[in-house]
């Protein structure tokens, strides 16, 4: 038995940044999008939600973002945190076509009332972080798909949020671009020290990026199990071809098949 002091210390050290507590989401017509989902996300985590379509991963993300509310259960935030301090990256770059790269990245701060002059340094530091420092004046249509996605990531990171939600951000990109962005994303995350919840349907991507993979199944959407990827960061191209990576991929893949089997 541990003393009370020890317990409190251990609890606070492991206190999650955000946690879903037995969350259900039911849409009209008794469509159960999520059933009894619990998930603790601690500061610095890179958590992937992996599963087939219809498993509720995007629904979970929308709940965390505060865009909709749980039917049952609750979402708890660490003190001083909340859905209003997030960065979000969607599957599409979702940029404003009428605004330059710089103005797109300015948006989150502009909506908080910050003038461009007052945050110019933040904007340019973030553009440098994503490797687009020379494209501040460009319009989205002038950029490639990968570059647009980098702008989208810059917009999510510019406010230095504790938590960034990414909803299949690289699914529409070619493999070469996706690998490069995977590498760069880990580097950026390390630099700004944020926490990431990443929705994907690629086993390979989830293993490369995350330290925890939450495997989900569909109809109704639910968590099947959690797979730990205890390979240390930084991870680079060498990791992608290592035996360790192959092993984790197999484990995640098996778990996913199990999940699909259970669902069927």
């Amino acid at each position: 038995m541990t003393s009370n002091g020890d317990l409190a210390a251990r609890l606070s050290a492991r206190a999650p940044l955000m946690s879903l507590q037995s969350v259900d989401k039911v849409f009209a017509g008794d469509v159960v999008a999520l059933r009894n989902m619990s998930l603790d996300v601690r500061a610095g985590d890179f958590v992937s939600l992996l599963g087939p379509s219809g498993c509720g991963k995007s629904t979970a993300l929308r709940l965390i973002a505060g865009l909709s509310h749980p039917t049952r259960g609750r979402i708890a935030w660490a003190d001083g945190q909340g859905a209003d301090q997030l960065g979000v990256v969607f599957q599409e770059p979702t940029l404003m076509p009428w605004a330059t790269v710089e103005d797109n990245v300015w948006l989150p701060m502009r909506l908080k009332g910050a003038s461009k002059a007052s945050v110019r340094d933040d904007i340019h530091d973030t553009l440098r972080l994503v490797g687009l420092e020379n494209f501040a004046e460009a319009y989205p249509r002038e950029l490639s798909g990968g570059m647009k996605m980098r702008v989208s990531i810059a917009r999510a990171m510019v406010t230095h949020p504790k938590l960034i939600l990414m909803d299949e951000p690289f699914a529409a990109l070619d493999e070469i671009t996706r690998f490069k962005l995977n590498n760069d994303l880990l580097e950026m995350k390390a630099k700004i020290g944020c926490t990431v919840i990443f929705v994907t349907h690629s086993v390979f991507e989830s293993v490369f990026l995350s330290d925890r993979i939450v495997i989900m199944a569909a109809r109704p959407g639910r968590v099947i199990r959690e797979v730990q990827v205890d390979a240390p960061y930084p991870r680079d191209e060498a990791f992608r071809t290592s035996a360790e990576y192959a092993g984790h991929t197999r484990a995640a893949s098996d778990a996913l098949h199990e999940a699909m089997g259970e669902a069927a």
């Binding site: 209003d84 969607f90 979702t94 908080k112």
Partner: peptide, 14 residues
């Protein structure tokens, strides 16, 4: 207006 952009504006409390 793009629906994801509308969501983004909601998230940022516009």
């Amino acid at each position: 207006a793009d629906h994801n952009l509308q969501d983004l504006f909601s998230i940022y409390g516009a």
